[in-house]
Design a protein around this nucleic acid. Sequence first.
DNA 1: ACCTGAACACCGTTCAAGT
DNA 2: ACCTGAACACCGTTCAAGT
Lengths: 234, 234
Amino acid sequence: MVARPAQRAQPRPPLTRDRVLRAAIQVADEHGIAALTMRRLAEVVGAEAMSLYHHVANKEQVLDGVVEMITTEINELVDAIDLPSAGTAWKAAMRQRILTARRVFLRHPWAPQVFESRSVLNAAVLKYHDGLVRIMRDGGFSNDLCHHALHALGSRALGFTQELFNPGGAAAGADTGADLSSMAAALPNLVGMLAEVVHDDPDSTLGWCDDQTEFEFGLDLLLDGLDRLRAQGS
Amino acid sequence: MVARPAQRAQPRPPLTRDRVLRAAIQVADEHGIAALTMRRLAEVVGAEAMSLYHHVANKEQVLDGVVEMITTEINELVDAIDLPSAGTAWKAAMRQRILTARRVFLRHPWAPQVFESRSVLNAAVLKYHDGLVRIMRDGGFSNDLCHHALHALGSRALGFTQELFNPGGAAAGADTGADLSSMAAALPNLVGMLAEVVHDDPDSTLGWCDDQTEFEFGLDLLLDGLDRLRAQGS
DNA sequence: ACCTGAACACCGTTCAAGT
DNA sequence: ACCTGAACACCGTTCAAGT
């Protein structure tokens, strides 16, 4: 009666906010954001759903914390970048920063949706953008142009875009292919474009585009335009 | 016993998919997207929740239908635009089309989130983009450049951006102001930028930016860059 | 203090039954 | 055929109670 036998082989480490948030990211990574429920989250950390509420106020705060944790990881990576940013060098510094941040989002494909659903200003996200403004100021941007630039880049500044045309589930590819050819009459320009663009991969559809290439194309289009405005002293 | 008295002053018109979708848009417009539940939707059309399932398969299909209905409205507006698009005129034609579409989204601030949550290709959305490709082709774009352009524009092609920094609820403005000044040490570049950019409106914060101005700035940056690539025959 | 079982007020959706 | 009440399997969250 003195020594109670351990009920589990590995006694559960005490619950903390940090452990809860880490588990939330893990659940979303493995099963998608829809699977992230308080009950499931509790299961992963080996507790009851109601125990979570001693460490986070509610589910909204879990999502806020997840955004904070991912952005903190990004901040650590980009703070380690040591690149000149004065004058024309600003563009390369900015580009590397953004593509570094993007690599984190590629590991969390559900994260863009969560980031865009938050309406509160997050300290880590602000810190990330503060770093972007520093680079642009080093490059000779006026504060006004910095401000326009942040708006123009939008989520691209953090390394992601929300694609309007997503590849759906497993069957979506085949379905879309059939739909598209039957829609050729109604969509002559789009179908003509796709026929030419994806000709080297006959199975391709809109969903099969090279996301990285397209991300960099759009990013460079914006950075080049901003550099032109910088040069003319906007 | 022959003539049963009407149970309601105005007998309810028969339920249709169209009426259900219209009611969905109305509920979201008036009470936000979170208020759009099947039970509430039924209430608005004067039926029981379960009656909705005779006209739509499920809630996902309601959201798909809402996207389709809004895009159809946009298509009607942009199809009425009669603007030349050959050669350099492409840019003005594209710009007007996109800003026209944007006006529809300004009436449905919840719609961007719904559009980006859909993963299936919608016929009306494809038709809208087909029109954009036509204009770019008229302007002399290669199919390859058209394709890059659609990706680079992303949701901006349809007239909306999802802002990462949203003005929160009513109290968010004041809170944010206090937070920002206390964060000046940690965020020198961002705070410095804001101090200068919003100096003419002392109550301003990031959330108070002129969305229309910023949208057009980002759009023109992209369109100008694309025009440059078009001119050099990419 | 930290954790929990039972319960509440909601969801979307199924089913069998009404007319 | 169209519509409905009751019910089911989920949610997030509250509460009173355990240690």
